[in-house]
Simulated assay, not measured.
Amino acid sequence: MRRHGPVALRYVLLLVMAVLLVGPFAWQLLTSLKGTAEPIYGPDVTWLPQDPTLGNFAKVAEVIPVWRYIANSAMVATASVLTNCLLGAMAGYALARMRFRGRGAVFAAVLASLVVPFEVIMVNVFLTVRSLGLVDTLLGVLLPGAVSGLSILVMRTAFLALPREVEEAASIDGAGEWARFWKVALPSVRGSLAVVGVFSFLFAWDDFLWPLIVLKNPDNFTLTVGLQYLSGTFTNDQRVVAAGTMIAVLPLMAVFFALQRLFFRGVGEGGVKG
């Protein structure tokens, strides 16, 4: 009984956590499928849609140019994945393998960037973007997140975990620093690249505050900024708002499930050596 008690308690805690995490998402999904005749609040609320419909999703497309917003978000998120993977890997490799003056200071600056909230430097970042003439452009949205301290840290940890013998063998064969990085080290940390890619896509796709500040032209809005108009137009129809939320969330889930095997492999790579 002593052994079964803690095990049962763990399962109960896991079940409670699952309900807390999945419950809001499930409620939004079910609400987005309900028709106008079905209540979503009050004592007569129905938990499951009695007559499921996709009409709420069609209403979202009627009110806002949702496909344009999805395309804008996809461009920013895809570019963020590419820049974070490439630049993060290059910086991480340099900090893990190369010897140069000031390496410790650079690494300390990378760590410091992880604890400084973006809101603290947001004004300075905006002034920089404005001076470059990138206000109201998707490039201006991308630039501050083109490479993050987290991406550099993850890749540095992955490269530190690689045996040096592999790179030394390539060096004996005449491979230079760039060849060792591109052809030997980088293919060996694909799991960590997946971790960086997933996080980069999530942060770029889900970002709201920075695109709201930078973008002025509605044609350039990302999805998270464009969806705010649903609340103003359909103030009393939370079914349409829930449908818009699902449109924003489903791509994140699709990317994660597509890369989950590499993602968890990368988590394991990063835990081998700090």
Rank of each mutant, 00 (worst) to 15 (best):
A74P: 08
A74E: 13
A74Y: 11
M75H: 12
M75N: 13
A77G: 10
A77Y: 03
T78E: 14
V81M: 09
V81P: 10
L87N: 01
G88K: 00
A89N: 04
M90Q: 06
M90P: 02
M90E: 00
A91E: 02
G92V: 01
A94R: 07
L95Y: 06
A96I: 02
R97H: 08
R99C: 14
R99M: 12
R101D: 14
R101C: 08
A109H: 08
A109S: 15
V110A: 03
L111W: 04
A112I: 12
S113L: 05
S113K: 02
S113Q: 08
L114N: 08
L114F: 05
L114I: 06
L114Y: 04
V115D: 11
V115R: 12
F118D: 11
E119P: 09
E119M: 13
E119Y: 13
E119T: 15
V120G: 10
I121G: 14
I121W: 12
I121Y: 13
N124Y: 14
N124L: 13
V125Y: 09
V125W: 15
T128W: 11
V129G: 10
R130P: 09
G133H: 11
G133Y: 10
L134F: 04
L134R: 05
L134A: 07
V135F: 12
V135R: 12
V135C: 14
D136Y: 04
D136L: 09
T137R: 10
L138M: 10
L139W: 14
L139G: 15
L139H: 11
G140N: 11
G140R: 11
L142C: 07
G145H: 12
A146K: 08
G149C: 02
L150V: 14
L150S: 15
S151M: 03
L153M: 14
L153V: 09
V154Y: 01
M155Y: 03
M155G: 02
R156G: 05
T157P: 10
A158D: 04
F159C: 02
F159V: 01
F159T: 04
F159Y: 02
A161W: 00
P163N: 04
P163T: 00
R164V: 12
E165I: 04
E165L: 13
V166F: 15
V166M: 15
E167D: 06
E167R: 07
E168M: 09
E168C: 06
E168F: 01
A169L: 07
A169V: 07
A169F: 00
D173L: 02
G176F: 02
E177N: 10
W178E: 09
A179R: 11
A179C: 09
F181T: 03
W182Q: 13
K183R: 13
V184I: 10
V184C: 10
V184W: 08
L186H: 07
L186R: 09
P187G: 07
R190V: 04
G191S: 05
G191R: 00
S192A: 11
S192N: 06
L193Y: 04
A194I: 07
V195L: 04
V195T: 05
V195I: 08
V196M: 06
V196P: 00
G197R: 06
F199Q: 02
S200V: 03
F201R: 03
F201M: 03
F201T: 01
F201H: 01
W205L: 12
